[in-house]
């Protein structure tokens, strides 16, 4: 698939996304908007579109970076405990500082996501049996454990239902004023783009990178920081969107190959297109109600993931 087709699809979907909703705003109204309609566009529809685009792109790229660094196709924020750690972080910040600002929450959540991912990478080092299937299994177990720790605290503070509600990714609550934190991702993604080559080299292993004169630790740490920061900001504003970082990079790899520099733009675009698509489906399927994005992506994503697993020999994953 050429980039321009992806861009074309992205624009079409974005356009559709803006004009789907309970309040009627049609493209024809665009030139003579009533005050209400303008309000809806600016406060709800456009922020929603922007947050979908950012979340889709950044979670996909996070997955891509993690796969490069761990040299395993099935490692992603979902399968490495990053998402669960970020969630634990939010819970802790809610318990410790009741009046925490979103930014403070994000910092705490970022710290947890970073530590969690770091522990996972340490575990990877210790595991001798590096079967491609076994690693994500360990990662998912690790994630479950982190959530059982969250549950422990949530239960004691009567936050279980609360936690379920911000565990699931949901764009319907996005409005101007509560999603701006997502913009943090943009400069970070730019950074990821500049470091793309280095991540690929670091993925070849410590000895290989040293041989090429690359500071291995530094690059890996930078990669993990990027992943943790982006994940924290997305989880806090949108919620958990499972499988995104897992399937998008793998689909791109199938037709673009493994070199990060070559695939990073495709990954970002496809991620955005995919989330947009799922969001539109979620909004239409039980119209006028909405299915949260975590469910649509979860259903479609797990289906795609299982398909990829079944066909993995064929695609050389």
């Amino acid at each position: 698939m050429k980039i321009r087709y992806l861009v074309l699809i992205l624009i079409t979907f974005s356009f559709a996304s803006v004009f789907i909703g309970v309040s009627n705003v049609s493209p024809l109204d665009l030139f003579h908007l009533t005050e209400d309609q303008a309000q809806i566009l600016l406060v709800s529809r456009l922020p929603r579109l922007v947050s979908i685009l950012i979340a889709g792109m950044s979670m996909s790229i996070c997955g891509l970076i993690m796969q490069q660094l761990s040299r395993n196709k099935f490692v992603s924020p979902t399968t490495a405990g990053t998402l669960d750690s970020a969630r634990l972080g939010i819970l802790v910040s809610m318990m410790m500082f009741t009046a925490a600002s979103p930014f403070q929450k994000m910092l705490v959540s970022f710290a947890f996501a970073l530590i969690g991912t770091f522990i996972f990478m340490k575990i990877l080092d210790k595991i001798k049996f590096k079967d491609a299937i076994f690693i994500p299994l360990v990662g998912l177990m690790f994630g479950n454990i982190i959530s059982s720790i969250s549950t422990f605290f949530a239960y004691r503070n009567d936050l279980i239902q609360n936690m379920s509600s911000w565990m699931q990714g949901d764009f319907s609550m996005i409005m101007s004023g509560n999603y701006e934190l997502l913009y943090v991702s943009i400069p970070i993604l730019a950074l990821a783009f500049f470091y793309a080559n280095k991540f690929t080299i670091a993925g070849m292993g410590e000895d290989f990178s040293k041989n090429l004169g690359l500071n291995y630790r530094q690059v890996v740490n930078l990669g993990l920081i990027i992943v943790a920061l982006v994940t924290a900001s997305v989880v806090l504003t949108v919620g958990v969107i499972p499988f995104l970082g897992l399937i998008i990079p793998n689909i791109v790899t199938i037709y673009r190959g493994d070199h990060l520099k070559k695939s990073i733009i495709h990954t970002a675009l496809l991620g955005a297109v995919f989330v947009l698509f799922c969001d539109i489906i979620g909004r239409l399927i039980i119209y006028p109600y909405e299915v949260p994005i975590s469910l649509t992506v979860g259903v479609i994503g797990s289906g795609i993931f299982i398909y990829l697993l079944l066909r993995r020999k064929k695609y050389g994953l």
Binding site: I133, Q161, P292, S294, L295, G298, S302
Partner: peptide, 28 residues
């Protein structure tokens, strides 16, 4: 029949069930 494969699929389905559960729990 790789047993790890079986487990990974089971685990993904578990996550899948979890998404549905979360969804319903919020609505309850």
């Amino acid at each position: 029949n790789n047993i790890y494969f079986l487990l990974l699929i089971g685990m993904i389905l578990g996550t899948f069930f979890g998404s549905f559960t979360d969804f319903m729990q919020v609505l309850i």
